[in-house]
């Protein structure tokens, strides 16, 4: 029904923009990852696999990559576990104030990422709110040092940041479950708990997958929380990339790591889309 000119005009500008500012940069990143830097610090456009070789060969990269994945996995797990019961409560057992509660989950999303990470720093520090409170209440006598500058702080902060992200798709999936299915389940003799496990959990899986993917992917690539709260034991893969692009001045190696991250993220998105489709049952 729409004319060819109409379709061309709405398609072409975003297509060109995406090509110029998404496709081209990714391609460039891929190209960079095969180049190298001379001793004098200038870029050499010679093609080789040395960067990928380093990436695979050096212990520090492997370890950091694993640590990043492990931190992201914990964040994903906690974010989903924390948000799922709340989504269930809101979607199925709240009538009054449902909108308000929903908004209360969303509002932290509007608070600056940096500000929230910073707030955790002031809470967890040696002279931070938590330690001084504990001492004030005579629960501890000395500040606990493991709170800040540890993977624990990173996981805690990222969980705090990504729980609302995980909540949204889970809640949306639950809201999409037709209510007469719940009634049908009760009608067929299932208890509330049985209905939960046999109807609600399977039908909310697409939301869980989407939320988990969000939480994992975004925390996997994070470099600010580790810089702010992670300390030496909380360094993540993106921090290495940042230093390669900064002080270490080895863009090609940084590009190689970034490209691997990009590939991993795309693979995860692909996987999660497959899972969501499979569990959408329609």
């Amino acid at each position: 029904m729409f004319s060819r000119a109409y379709k061309t005009w709405v398609t072409l500008p975003p297509l060109v923009w995406v090509a110029a500012f998404l496709v081209l940069p990714y391609a460039l990143m891929f190209a960079y990852s095969f180049w190298s830097v001379s001793a004098a610090g200038s870029l050499r456009h010679t093609w080789n696999f040395a960067n990928y070789g380093q990436l695979l060969g050096r212990e520090v990269y492997r370890q950091t990559l694993l640590r990043s994945a492990w931190i992201a996995a914990r964040v994903m797990l906690f974010a989903v576990l924390l948000s799922y019961p709340l989504a269930y409560l809101l979607s199925f057992h709240t009538r009054k104030g449902k909108d308000l509660l929903y908004q209360l989950v969303i509002i932290p999303l509007w608070v600056s990422y940096l500000v929230r990470a910073y707030a955790w720093k002031t809470i967890l520090g040696t002279d931070g709110v938590l330690n001084t409170s504990l001492q004030y209440l005579h629960i501890t006598t000395h500040p606990l040092h493991f709170l800040l500058y540890s993977p624990f702080a990173v996981v805690l902060t990222l969980t705090h940041i990504y729980t609302p992200f995980a909540f949204l798709p889970v809640y949306a999936a639950m809201e999409h479950i037709p209510r007469n299915l719940i009634e049908a389940s009760h009608d067929l003799g299932a208890s509330a708990l049985q209905t939960f496990w046999r109807v609600i959990v399977p039908l909310s899986m697409p939301g869980v997958v989407a939320g988990a993917t969000f939480a994992f992917v975004l925390s996997f690539g994070d470099f600010l929380a580790p810089l702010l709260l992670g300390g030496p034991s909380g360094v993540m893969i993106s921090n290495i990339v940042v230093s390669l692009f900064g002080a270490a001045y080895n863009w090609p190696l940084g590009a190689a790591i970034s490209f691997c991250m990009l590939a991993l993220v795309i693979a995860l998105l692909w996987l999660s889309e497959r899972l969501e489709k499979r569990w959408a049952w329609s």
Binding site: V18, V23, L218, G254
Partner: peptide, 24 residues
């Protein structure tokens, strides 16, 4: 592919978007 590409930056860690544009 276009749809996926447009949506990608939203779920991509900012570092990748930032760095790829920096190289551009």
């Amino acid at each position: 592919a276009f749809r996926r590409l447009v949506l990608l930056p939203l779920v991509l860690p900012g570092i990748i978007t930032g760095l790829s544009l920096l190289m551009l």
